[in-house]
Amino acid sequence: MKKKLNKIIIIGLAIVMVTFIFYKKITDNNPYNDFKNISINESLNQKDKSYYLYYYMKDCYYCNLIKEDMFNFAKKHKNIYFVDIDKYKNQRIKYDWESFNTKNDKEIGYSKDGKSITYYEGESEDKYLHTKEKNKYGKTKMYEIVIADKEYKNENKNAKLGKVYAKEIIPEIDYSKYKYGDKLIIAGSPTLLHVTNGKIDDFYFDSRDIGEYVRGEK
């Protein structure tokens, strides 16, 4: 009876171990781990004279849009470090998107049915989706066209339901001021930074901006 009990215990432990290993394998299935990963606090602490920092989240929709582009870019540029910002939430300063969008988004038309858009005179989708306008840090602005709903009103406090807005999607951040030891502002994922001699000298944000850069379209 005792031997039978021991056998049951051993089998039970074996099942638990196999289940744990299988679960760990599934949860650790992160393709970004094939590349060099660091913490946010190590961002400006690398020995390379020139390197890239890519901030992502494994399940981020916009990161997944350019995942293969980033992997191809990383294979060509060995001096790139990946940072999973979901792991290091407390090591970054969040960007104030509400204040930014409330201040900068532009009302450019209206929609009566929530689908079709009537633009004001002088306004158009093309004007904003292909803009060459620069922000105060020299980055080309990027927009998306939004019909204001309750969700968007949480992003832009000046928004009126049914009105159409050109929503700015490139944050205004002065990365040139950061040095080793500073807590970085990361506006979200994906974000791509370039560092030279310990200083951030260029950045790209959102799948469209980053995708164009890593594919050599900029």
Score class of each variant (00 low, 15 high):
158 N>I: 09
201 D>W: 02
153 K>R: 14
179 K>F: 10
128 Y>H: 13
157 K>M: 06
133 E>M: 07
81 Y>V: 13
63 C>R: 02
51 Y>A: 14
111 S>C: 06
164 V>M: 00
163 K>A: 12
32 Y>M: 08
152 Y>W: 15
41 N>P: 01
46 Q>R: 15
199 K>E: 12
203 F>S: 00
148 A>I: 01
86 D>W: 11
105 D>W: 00
85 I>G: 00
66 I>C: 03
202 D>E: 10
111 S>D: 09
77 H>G: 06
127 K>H: 10
139 K>W: 02
118 T>D: 10
183 K>S: 05
71 F>S: 11
71 F>K: 11
6 N>M: 15
128 Y>D: 11
30 N>Q: 09
99 S>H: 13
194 H>F: 15
171 P>H: 07
81 Y>G: 13
39 S>H: 13
88 Y>I: 08
76 K>H: 10
186 I>L: 09
32 Y>N: 04
97 W>A: 07
6 N>E: 14
2 K>S: 10
216 G>Y: 07
126 D>G: 08
189 S>M: 07
85 I>D: 02
173 I>T: 07
126 D>E: 13
40 I>F: 05
116 S>I: 06
166 A>L: 03
1 M>Q: 11
163 K>C: 10
56 Y>R: 06
85 I>W: 01
58 K>Q: 13
54 Y>P: 02
78 K>D: 15
34 D>M: 15
161 L>W: 00
79 N>Y: 03
210 I>S: 03
55 Y>M: 06
57 M>Y: 04
205 F>K: 09
115 K>F: 10
103 K>L: 05
41 N>H: 05
169 I>C: 04
181 G>C: 03
114 G>Y: 00
182 D>P: 02
65 L>G: 11
111 S>F: 01
216 G>K: 04
147 I>G: 00
190 P>T: 05
61 Y>Q: 15
211 G>N: 13
159 A>S: 00
150 K>C: 00
133 E>L: 08
16 V>L: 14
102 T>R: 02
179 K>P: 03
48 D>Q: 09
96 D>E: 12
218 K>V: 06
12 G>T: 07
212 E>D: 15
187 A>G: 04
172 E>S: 09
12 G>V: 07
126 D>N: 11
171 P>Q: 09
195 V>N: 02
66 I>D: 02
101 N>A: 09
6 N>A: 15
11 I>E: 00
160 K>Q: 07
174 D>A: 06
107 E>D: 09
167 K>G: 02
47 K>V: 12
30 N>P: 02
62 Y>M: 09
187 A>R: 00
68 E>H: 10
109 G>Y: 03
98 E>G: 04
82 F>M: 11
